[in-house]
Amino acid sequence: MLQGGYQSVLEARSRDEFRSEITRFAHDLDFERFSAILVVDHPIGGSDFISVQNAPAGFSDIFNDPRLGKKDPVMQHCKRQSVPIVWNQQTYVKNDAPELWEAQAPFGYKVGISLALHLPEGRHFVLGVNREQTLPSNPVTLTRMVADLQLFAVHAVDAAMRVLLPIGQETDAPRLTPRELQCLHWTMEGKTAWEVGTILSISERTAVLHINNAMHKLGCTNKHQAVLKALRMGLIR
């Protein structure tokens, strides 16, 4: 896929333009169906799901039940991991959910590729493409498809945050810098400030500064409390 194809989704200025770009991308990869979901977690519980898709009539009425998502192996994979999943009927059979595949297959959802990007501040972007015909048996061709989807998702997520979230919406979580989040992550892994500095190629003093800044933003009195609060808010995983 040409670089311009990825660039154009970045320039989407509305939900309709965003949808058109995903439609074009899916069709270029020979997929009939697609879904793009922006998930916003709330610290007090619950999540908002904002989706753009081209599901046929009747499909959403059946599959919008959140209880199905807890059983769907593709959604469960995306919830827990960032690596893409290439799925087919056997994926559902192996995970004791063959009835879900049998219900969605008549709508054109027989095989597909899905992935999730897990972002700071409890936000997630899930992108999937689906079709009826089998996926390429050539591993090189299939790998190229997966790589195209990953690269497109990296570009599309910025547009999704811009055109799908309501204007002026503020996140419930404080805004921590990437370095502050990295320092909290390694603190969660049991690293000392000196070890965090070594891992991130910064001084121990700078690591302590980032941790202290994160503690202040989170309203915590020590780094362990800050790690727990960041975990609860979905800032780190």
Rank of each mutant, 00 (worst) to 15 (best):
Gln3Arg: 15
Tyr6Lys: 11
Gln7Gly: 14
Gln7Lys: 15
Val9Cys: 09
Leu10Tyr: 07
Ala12Val: 06
Arg15Gly: 13
Asp16Thr: 15
Glu17Ile: 06
Arg19Gln: 10
Ser20Cys: 11
Thr23Cys: 05
Thr23Lys: 02
Arg24Cys: 12
Ala26Lys: 02
Leu29Thr: 03
Glu32Ala: 08
Arg33Tyr: 05
Arg33Leu: 03
Leu38Tyr: 06
Val40Gln: 06
Val40Met: 09
Val40Tyr: 05
Asp41Ala: 15
Gly45Arg: 08
Gly46Thr: 04
Ser47Leu: 15
Phe49Tyr: 13
Ile50His: 10
Gln53Ala: 14
Ala55Leu: 10
Ala55Arg: 05
Pro56Gln: 01
Ala57Met: 12
Phe59Trp: 06
Ile62Pro: 11
Ile62Asp: 06
Asn64Ser: 10
Asn64Arg: 04
Asp65Leu: 12
Pro66Lys: 03
Arg67Cys: 07
Arg67His: 06
Leu68Glu: 00
Leu68His: 00
Pro73Asn: 07
Met75Phe: 12
Cys78Arg: 02
Cys78Val: 12
Cys78Glu: 12
Gln81Val: 12
Ile85Lys: 02
Ile85Gly: 04
Ile85Met: 05
Val86Asp: 07
Val86Phe: 04
Asn88Ile: 04
Gln90Met: 07
Gln90Thr: 09
Val93Thr: 13
Pro98Ile: 02
Pro98Ala: 01
Glu99Met: 15
Trp101Ile: 07
Glu102His: 03
Phe107Ala: 00
Ile113Cys: 00
Ser114Cys: 10
Leu115Ala: 00
Ala116Tyr: 04
Ala116Ser: 13
Leu117Glu: 04
His118Pro: 04
Arg123Asp: 08
His124Pro: 04
His124Met: 01
Phe125Met: 00
Val126Phe: 13
Val129Ala: 03
Glu132Ala: 05
Gln133Pro: 12
Thr134Trp: 06
Leu135Gly: 05
Leu135Val: 11
Pro136Gln: 00
Pro136Ala: 01
Ser137Leu: 14
Pro139Glu: 08
Pro139Ile: 00
Thr143Tyr: 09
Ala147Pro: 07
Ala147Val: 11
Asp148Ile: 10
Leu151Ser: 13
Phe152Val: 09
Phe152Trp: 08
Ala153Trp: 01
Val154Phe: 04
Ala156Val: 09
Ala159Gln: 07
Met161Tyr: 06
Arg162Val: 13
Val163Arg: 01
Leu164His: 05
Ala173Phe: 00
Ala173Gln: 09
Pro174Gln: 03
Pro174Tyr: 00
Leu176Gly: 04
Pro178Asn: 05
Glu180Asp: 05
Leu181Val: 15
Gln182Lys: 05
Leu184Trp: 05
Leu184Met: 07
His185Ala: 09
Thr187Leu: 15
Lys191Cys: 12
Trp194His: 12
Glu195Cys: 04
Glu195Trp: 01
Val196Ile: 15
Val196Asp: 05
Gly197His: 03
Ser203Asp: 12
Glu204His: 01
Arg205His: 02
Ile211Cys: 03
Asn212Gly: 10
Ala214Glu: 02
Leu218Gln: 00
Gly219Lys: 09
Thr221Lys: 11
Asn222Gln: 03
Asn222Trp: 00
Lys223Asp: 08
Lys223Ala: 00
His224Ser: 13
Ala226His: 01
Ala230Gln: 01
Leu235Pro: 12
Leu235Lys: 13
Leu235Met: 14
